[in-house]
Design a protein around this nucleic acid. Structure first.
Lengths: 350, 350
DNA sequence: CTGAAAGCGCTTACAG
DNA sequence: CTGAAAGCGCTTACAG
């Protein structure tokens, strides 16, 4: 009838509550045999620890926060789903709050939130992950934080990301493999971390295949549909236009398709187009866009894991603040090439 | 230094903890003067109740759940932000879980989740809000639930929604006001609640302005870009084509713009287009789409409020399960007409 | 490696 | 309308 309590487990296993607690927290040494008995009892009773009791006794809130600043709705959604599911499964609760760097008094807002809610750690998605202000305040508050897809990797806070340059390289090479040697590129907003990395990947792919990089094939965009449209028009109206275009974002790729259609260039028959992000628009439009999927949800899960690991290690002694983040490969996640309908092989054999 | 506790407040106010508790929960009668003293003490100490202690003492989890089933990422995002902020501000925690009706064993999954996590109430966004299975199981479990934008309003569970028919009426009338008398309509998926309501609104607007409803101006779509594209082509290639098209979703409206452009119809100069939803695509494309914004986030907030109200009232006696939901106007939220760039006045004066 | 005691900060009855 | 007592289910020291 009633849910099993730790007391019940202890009784059934024939040990003290203390031992059960130790088995669950997995921290102190317990004899294997004792552990097995306890595990069996937990299993039999379908015991679920009471998180409220745990928080109260340990004087910890078990609360972590995710702050976001006007990214796209789809992006926050994925972020929240990932962070929420992981924090729940690890016994933490998540508070979510938007934080506008330009209008809010970030310092006061941050301090108030952390103090009042007793927040133990913070997840920072872009662009907050690159905000020097926010990073500084958090350092001063001495509260652990983990960053998602930051531009700079020279900060002590750990981070998770994906290899954007490599992804850009891969999708460019996919175009080249299909026979394209005239590949246009539409850059993203110069202030955004991804823009440079994606351009980097594009360049490397061309170099690897001994294709000259033509300045007129590279157009500046701003990640928006509108900017992409103009850039694409510039590209397709060239005297010697590219046969394929890599736009640094899906919005710009969608615009490229519109621009092509407007100029009577069938996609992908006469022009291949690829994007980046796998935003909703990528599968909404027709033909569906070939693009790169960022594992946003997984990044949020990994970030949450990292943060909770840090909270469990650090027993509130403030050590190793100076040590660089142990950035191991596990925190660089896999992207995925979404091969859909906007790429075709060139007609002419090279 | 340390955060204030209820004991501190009681001491400062010169009363017992019990009185402080009563002031906070706002449930029992407290003399005004006493209340004021307590409030002042709370203020001075910046006291924040410890939610863990409260949950433990009251034997309540203070946990509500939101289940979702593959809606668009943007939609879940807004939903989560709304539900999360509201539940936090009211001292509840939110667990979020996806629930796939077709592949999961819904009954087992639901029961396990509710039992193990001690979930007190549930928020059901569409299409789960119309799932007879899920509704039945929740009724059997005797757990309060609130629905968002359900199709059927004959169920005992309360709901929040917006007046889709009225919104469709308004945006159609906006077209008519601009001089359009030849207004095409692209219907949504026949299974989806919104489709019929939106068609209803379209029809009412035409009727009000004494415009005949022409069968050839009404095309069936499925909410997808692709289906909208075909429907739009059918419309613009008519011998006597409409001068404006109302597509029941933004994806279909975006497709309509593409189709128009393909047929050398400038938007909005030669064809006005409006959509419904205010999805990300609406402001991504160019020209930016005139459409109706659903207040998804506000709906989630309201739903959360409704649910928590129900939890606080019902002291676990299971009464009034038979009474119809008190569906007052507060639970029908305001939509917003997003007047952007895809509507122009007709050249010819009527 | 294991246990007995105390206490975390509230709320629930129960009195008055 | 207000209060004193007990207890929610854990974890933190402290012993052994």
């Amino acid at each position: 009838m009633k849910t099993a309590t730790m007391q019940d487990v202890a009784q059934l296993a024939g040990v003290s509550m203390m031992t059960v607690s130790r088995v669950i927290s997995n921290e102190a040494k317990v004899r294997d045999k004792t552990r097995d008995k306890v595990m069996a009892a937990i299993e039999e009773l379908d015991y679920q620890p009471n998180l409220s009791a745990r928080s109260l006794a340990s004087a910890k809130s078990h609360l972590i926060a995710l702050f976001y600043q006007n990214p796209s709705e789809g992006y926050v959604g994925q972020l929240l789903i990932g962070a929420l599911s992981k924090s729940q499964s690890r016994g933490y609760n998540l508070v979510v709050s938007s934080l506008n760097e330009t209008t809010d008094d970030v310092e006061t807002a941050l301090k108030a939130l952390v103090r009042r809610n007793k927040i133990e750690g913070i997840i920072l998605p872009p662009p907050l992950s690159d905000s020097q202000r926010v990073l500084d305040i958090l350092m001063a508050l001495n509260i652990p934080a983990v960053r998602i897809s930051p531009q700079r990797d020279d900060h002590p806070f750990p981070f998770v990301c994906m290899d954007e340059a490599q992804a850009a390289f891969d999708i460019t090479e996919h175009l080249i493999t299909q026979g394209h040697r005239k590949v246009g590129f539409i850059q993203g907003h110069p202030d955004h971390s991804g823009s440079h990395l994606r351009y980097e990947g594009y360049k490397r792919a061309l170099e690897k295949h001994h294709i000259d990089i033509r300045d007129d094939y590279i157009q500046q965009g701003l990640f928006t549909y509108r900017s992409g449209f103009q850039a694409a028009v510039n590209l397709v109206t060239l005297a010697d236009p590219p046969t394929a275009i890599f736009a640094s974002s899906d919005d710009m790729a969608a615009a490229t398709i519109s621009a092509a259609q407007k100029h009577r260039l069938q996609v992908p028959g006469m022009l291949s187009v690829v994007g980046f992000d796998d935003a909703p628009i990528a599968s909404a439009i027709w033909p569906a866009l070939t693009t790169v999927r960022q594992p946003v949800r997984e990044m949020a899960e990994r970030a949450t894991d990292l943060l909770i690991d840090a909270l469990k290690k650090k027993p509130d002694t403030e050590q190793k603040r100076e040590t660089p983040p142990e950035q191991n490969l596990e925190n660089i996640l896999e992207y995925q090439l979404m091969l859909r309908e906007t790429v075709a092989a060139t007609k002419v054999t090279s």
